[in-house]
Amino acid sequence: MGRKNWLIMLGAAIFIGVFPWLVMPFKAVSHYVDVMVFAGIFSLVCIGLSLLMGYAGQISLAQAAFFGIGAYTSGILTSKFGVNPWLAMGGGTVVCATVAWVVGVPSLRLKGHYLAMATLGFGVIVNIIFAEEVNWTGGPSGMIDIPYLRMFGRKITSDLAWYYLVWGIVFLVLIFCFHVLHSRVGRALRAIHEDERAAESVGVPTAGFKVRVFMLSAVLASIAGSLYTHYVTCLNPSSFNLMWSIRFVLMVMVGGMQSLWGALVGTVLMTFVGNEWLQVFAELEILAYGAILLVVALFLPGGIVSIGGFRRKRRQSALEGAGT
């Protein structure tokens, strides 16, 4: 995965490792550990979305739905059937992969606007199901009393334990994804993004690869959803609605979708913006989201990581061809 990425990873790991100890002594910011747990969970979704959008060039406005499917599968299996949470998490990934396959095969034949609309429609349908299947999901009023995650025979309850667990998973997933990108598979994904016809001509089954990367992104969203379930221990359909799908796209775009680091930076930044700093604006929050999305799409298509010459050569072309 390249020397440069290992170095960045080392730096990021050190930062993540010491971060809690920097903020915990100060009361005003000690809850940043909690915010970072959410940032880590969302990062898993956004890493998958970055593979899909930034590398393979396919848009999805359904990531919140996969996040939700993972979350509800975990929630239902553990609270109603007493299944081991880790097993339930695995179950969630299987469900998500299956759903992503069923939806992905016909959807990914579509391009651009139609793909966006199809994933959007799918996401809204899933959300309606969450709200309507009251017996299973608790409906709009939500689902509560979801058991805690256990590890080595102990409940994981403290923010700090969650922090290291979630970020540990994030780094494992990052390493996995960097390896994928720096391989035959990753090259094929970039090839699909650049020129589908040419990719086919050298033997890349473009449709199959698009579906598989869509499934991978769904599986990552599902793992994130399961973690989310056990962290907050209650679920509500509004955490998985269209606005959240758009937020995930926003997180990836703010950071820069052509780089996994961009997805990570964007997610952490936007989680802080959403959970912390925009609270000041209260009702204006939604306007701020719209404005940020617009400004990034119009003026900074390469995202934050494209600022200052970092990956400059890709800057202009960050969005080029994506989803067309």
């Binding site: 996995f176 390896h179 994928v180 090259r187 050298v202 033997g203 890349v204 598989r212 991978l216």
Partner: peptide, 18 residues
């Protein structure tokens, strides 16, 4: 290297787990 695609076979898992 893209041209070698049809003559090689490792997939997502093999690549991700190296």
């Amino acid at each position: 290297m893209m041209g070698r695609h049809p003559r090689t076979g490792s997939g997502f898992l093999a690549a991700g787990l190296r």
